[in-house]
Amino acid sequence: MKEILILILLFGLVGSALLSVLIRNLLKAAITLAAASALLAAVMFLLGTWIAAVIELSVCAGMITVVFISAISLTKPLTDEEILIEARERRGRYIFLPFILIAVLALLIILKASNLMNFDFIESANSTSVPDFTTQTSVIWNNRALDILGQVIVLLSGVFGVVVLFKERTAK
């Protein structure tokens, strides 16, 4: 039962990622990207990593979409006739993408069915029990404490980036 649910969610994830690449309007592309993040968060939740799923949902599906939409609204849109010309040219470039994806998928299915390449390196699930919450948090805080320090430093750097890059400037 869980496998079928994960299959449906993964199908939605690949589909919405494909849509976010193909859609011409940047605003709608950012929203489909948020939908992809939400579906990925659901997959992570089903695989047992709850903390990461919540952070992915709130940060990627929330904050990154807000940043994208603010960047889109701060940059100028094209005029109407330029949009038509650009749409036609764009279709010519992106038309190959669905065919390439179907070809890659067919290649992978053929490789699996004919046993030419074994996928054992991702082993099958042997334990389906998920450790409880205190073990999860203790691993994050005790084993990977250096990464937490790195996150703090990266956030400091991001703060300086915002101060330097987003300050009011006069056009040169």
Binding site: R144, L146, D147, G150, Q151, I153, V154, S157, G158, F160, G161, V164, L165, R169, K172
Partner: peptide, 30 residues
């Protein structure tokens, strides 16, 4: 951090710190 770490994922973390700060430093005179 890149020089001191003994762990491959912490290497990635500190590489990213260096990279993000370099982007900001390059773009500083705008």
């Amino acid at each position: 951090g890149v020089v001191l770490t003994r762990d491959i994922f912490s290497l990635y973390v500190f590489l990213e710190i260096t990279a993000v700060t370099s982007f900001i430093l390059i773009a500083m005179d705008k």
